[in-house]
Each structure stands twice: as structure tokens, then as C-alpha cells.
């Protein structure tokens, strides 16, 4: 870990020096530059990549690297010393893993929300209409495992609705469930609304009222040991700006209340 951090530092130093040498010191002082490492929940893959591209275009000296994975895996990596600048979690619990270790540079901010939706293959071959279908043993069904955020949310909506689900598989992350819908191997999967939006024409979404029982809040924070705190703050500002909110809304997320 230390080697990686040193390397990042070295890359940063080289980037800063070369930038200063080429454009004079004014530009380097103005915008963020160097390498920015963002650890973000898998569900943010599309929208964060897009926002990152925009920030890179506005700041030619900036190179953003993303590590998209399940929030719990990311939290573990950060606590184990992974050199990250910014962490965006799909739920407050995994953010708490990081803040409990005292690794945040400031109070985490909730920047968006996500609700569960039923994803079915195009044409809805299983004839799924609502959450109650997850108790139908004849359908092939996928939910997230209870250990990951979407599974915790699923457990909440099932409990609120008084439904005992009979899934055929408990997925290790939300995108794995979505993949099985895209392949047509399950009749329905419980995923996030944003995942349905990102999947394109192969997947149809069925919203359901019980989803309001488990609204997932997404917090982000700049990390205490961030090798590039200025760039991390610039990215956080962009996500929280009107532009960032619009991009999140386009991707199927809801504004945070």
C-alpha cells in the first residue's frame, strides 16, 4: 500500500512539474491537476464516468481513475489503506465503516438517492407485475444477498410488504443480478432504478410502491489521506452542482431530499 501511495505521489509530482514547465505556473494553480482516484459504488459507474470525463476536459492536467465495485468491498479496501481521494458509497452503513476508522476529511454529504425497481427481460416473459411475484416459486428470481446494500434494501421492502420471497439466487452485487436479466436467465431481479436505466433496451423496469420503504442514500466524502485533496474537492463540487444533479437524474437517480 505504501509503495502504491508513493507511486501515486511520484506521478502527481511529475504531473505537477511537467504541467508547470509547459504552461507556466498560473494554470497549475487555477484548476485541479494530477491524478485523482475515486472509489465509487458500482451503481455510479456510468454517471461518474461521464462527470469525470467532463472534469478532465475542463482541466487538461487532470487524470481521473475510478475504482467501481460493491460499496462494502470499497470500504474494506479504503480501511486496508488503498490510496483513494474520494469515496462515494451506495449506503450510509458502508460510509460508516470508513468514518468509524476516522479516515474522512470532512462530514460525508448525501448527494443522491436510489430506489429499488423490478428488472425484467424485454417483453417480460415471466409476466411479472409487482413485488408479490417474488413469492412465486415457478418464476426464476434473483435478489441481492443480504450482505450487500441492495440486499439490505430488498429485505426491508419485503418485510414492509409482508412478502416472503423465494429467490433462486442471492447475488453478490446488484450488477450481477442485472446481467442475469439481460441474458434472459431470470424472470425478474430486484435492482436499483438507475441500473434499469443503464441496461438499455434489453431490460424493462417495473416500479413498485413498496420501494419507498427503503430509499438508499448515497453519501460521499473526501478522504483524510487523499493524495490529491484539491482535485477530490473539485469532483465532489461537480457531483453536488446543478450539472451533477442533472446527470444523476438522467441516470435514473433521485435528488436527495
Amino acid at each position: 500500500m505504501r509503495v502504491a501511495r508513493l507511486l501515486t505521489g511520484a506521478v502527481l509530482a511529475v504531473a505537477l512539474t511537467s504541467c508547470g514547465a509547459a504552461d507556466g505556473s498560473e494554470d497549475a494553480a487555477e484548476g485541479p491537476s494530477g491524478t485523482l482516484t475515486v472509489f465509487a459504488a458500482a451503481s455510479l459507474t456510468d454517471v461518474f464516468t461521464e462527470l469525470g470525463d467532463r472534469l478532465e476536459q475542463d482541466n487538461p492536467g487532470l487524470d481521473i481513475r475510478f475504482n467501481f465495485a460493491g460499496s462494502s468491498a470499497l470500504a474494506t479496501q479504503i480501511v486496508q489503506g488503498a490510496p483513494a481521494d474520494l469515496f462515494a458509497s451506495a449506503n450510509p452503513q458502508q460510509m460508516a465503516v470508513v468514518t468509524d476508522a476516522g479516515l474522512e476529511a470532512g462530514e460525508p454529504v448525501v448527494f443522491t438517492e436510489n430506489v429499488l425497481e423490478i428488472a425484467v427481460p424485454a417483453g417480460n416473459p415471466g409476466g411479472v407485475t409487482g413485488l408479490a411475484d417474488f413469492a412465486d416459486p415457478d418464476l426464476v428470481l434473483s435478489v441481492c444477498a443480504a450482505a450487500v446494500p441492495c440486499g439490505a434494501a430488498a429485505a426491508e421492502v419485503f418485510e414492509a410488504a409482508g412478502i416472503t420471497p423465494v429467490p433462486d439466487t442471492e447475488e453478490e452485487d446488484v450488477r450481477a443480478g442485472l446481467t442475469k436479466v439481460q441474458l434472459g436467465e431470470v424472470d425478474a431481479a430486484l435492482v436499483y432504478a438507475s441500473d434499469v436505466r443503464s441496461a438499455g433496451p434489453d431490460v424493462e423496469g417495473i416500479p413498485f410502491p413498496e420501494a419507498e420503504q427503503a430509499i438508499n442514500e448515497y453519501p460521499l466524502c473526501v478522504l483524510e489521506d487523499a493524495p490529491n485533496p484539491a482535485a477530490a474537492q473539485a469532483f465532489a463540487d461537480l457531483v453536488l452542482s446543478d450539472e451533477g444533479r442533472a446527470a444523476l437524474a438522467d441516470a435514473g437517480f433521485r435528488p436527495s431530499s
Binding site: S142, A145, P167, D168, T169, E170, E172, A176, K180
Partner: peptide, 16 residues
């Protein structure tokens, strides 16, 4: 985990 999924008792193995 991809092809068989993960369900305790039927498809959940030790690595999963």
C-alpha cells in the same frame, strides 16, 4: 457464482 448463482443449501459453496 455466475452460472449457478448463490443460494444457501443448493448453490452456495465455500468460496461464495
Amino acid at each position: 457464482i455466475t452460472f449457478a448463482g448463490n443460494f444457501p443449501g443448493t448453490t452456495q459453496t465455500m468460496p461464495t
